[in-house]
Simulated scan of single mutants.
Amino acid sequence: MIVEVIPTIVRWYSQASFVFITHNQAQRADLMRHAAAHGIEHNLYLLGTIGEEEKLARLRASDVLPFPSRYEGFGLPLLEGMAAGVPVISTDIPVVNEIIVHSENDLLIPYDDTDALVHAILSVLVDQRVRERLIAGGQRTLNERFTSERLVRPIIAVYEKVLAGR
């Protein structure tokens, strides 16, 4: 979906850059073919393996993290985006919609809706108040629901219960 919206975003922001981190050579070739066909190859950067520090630096330097997933097992990229202070746009699917509350801590779009993705990306790029509200909401979500203390305490309690029952 992101590849499909790049030409529209570039029409609005000619200097927009899109960074993909992919190890799949076939996907890399498809992305570059699409970019060349639409004259946006100078807006597209394909990275291979990068370390966690570089990933965090790139997230922090981003204006938006479009992540229109078709399936998510947990949603770690969403939390990484929130932690980096970047607005996240993702698909309204299970797991994602358990983390993202639309317009409060990030944005949800309907499944496979490229027009909604364009609109959401542009809303974050155009309106600083929207951007700031989403970033603040993401930080609240992390602080209220995803602290290491809150996530680890129940796991430790299970282990303690098992050990006590031996």
Score class of each variant (00 low, 15 high):
Glu4Met: 08
Glu4Arg: 14
Val5Met: 09
Ile6His: 03
Ile6Ser: 04
Ile6Tyr: 00
Pro7Val: 09
Pro7Ser: 09
Thr8Arg: 13
Val10Lys: 11
Val10His: 05
Trp12Asp: 13
Trp12Val: 10
Gln15Trp: 02
Ala16His: 01
Ser17Val: 06
Ser17Phe: 01
Phe18Trp: 06
Phe18Glu: 04
Phe18Gly: 05
Phe20Tyr: 15
Ile21Met: 11
His23Gly: 14
Gln25Glu: 15
Arg28Ser: 14
Met32Gln: 14
Arg33Gly: 10
Ala35Phe: 02
Ala36Asn: 12
Ala37Ile: 01
His38Phe: 13
Ile40Asp: 03
Asn43Cys: 10
Asn43Asp: 04
Leu44Lys: 02
Tyr45Asp: 08
Leu47Thr: 03
Ile50Leu: 00
Glu52Pro: 00
Glu54Thr: 07
Leu56Thr: 12
Leu56Gly: 00
Arg58Lys: 10
Arg58Cys: 01
Arg60His: 03
Val64Tyr: 02
Leu65Asp: 01
Phe67Asp: 05
Ser69Tyr: 09
Phe74Asp: 05
Pro77Met: 06
Leu78Ala: 07
Leu78Arg: 03
Leu78Lys: 05
Leu79Trp: 02
Gly81Ser: 05
Gly85Pro: 01
Pro87Asn: 03
Val88Asp: 02
Ile89Asp: 03
Ile89Ser: 05
Ser90Ile: 01
Ser90Gln: 02
Thr91Lys: 05
Thr91Phe: 05
Asp92Lys: 10
Pro94Leu: 01
Val96Tyr: 02
Glu98Asp: 14
Glu98Lys: 09
Glu98Ala: 09
Ile99Val: 13
Ile100Thr: 06
Ile100Trp: 06
Ser103Phe: 07
Asn105Phe: 04
Leu107Ile: 13
Leu107Trp: 02
Leu107His: 02
Pro110Lys: 11
Pro110Thr: 11
Tyr111Phe: 15
Asp112Trp: 10
Asp112His: 14
Asp112Met: 14
Thr114Ser: 15
Asp115Gln: 15
Leu117Ser: 09
Leu117Glu: 07
Ala120Leu: 03
Ser123Tyr: 02
Val124Glu: 00
Leu125Ala: 05
Val126Ser: 10
Gln128Phe: 11
Arg129Thr: 15
Arg129His: 14
Arg133Leu: 12
Arg133Tyr: 08
Ile135Met: 08
Gly137Thr: 10
Gly137Phe: 11
Thr141Gly: 08
Glu149Ser: 13
Arg150Cys: 07
Leu151Cys: 14
Arg153Phe: 08
Arg153Thr: 15
Arg153Asn: 11
Pro154Gly: 09
Ile156Glu: 14
Tyr159His: 12
Lys161Pro: 00
Val162Gly: 08
Val162Ser: 08
Gly165Leu: 13
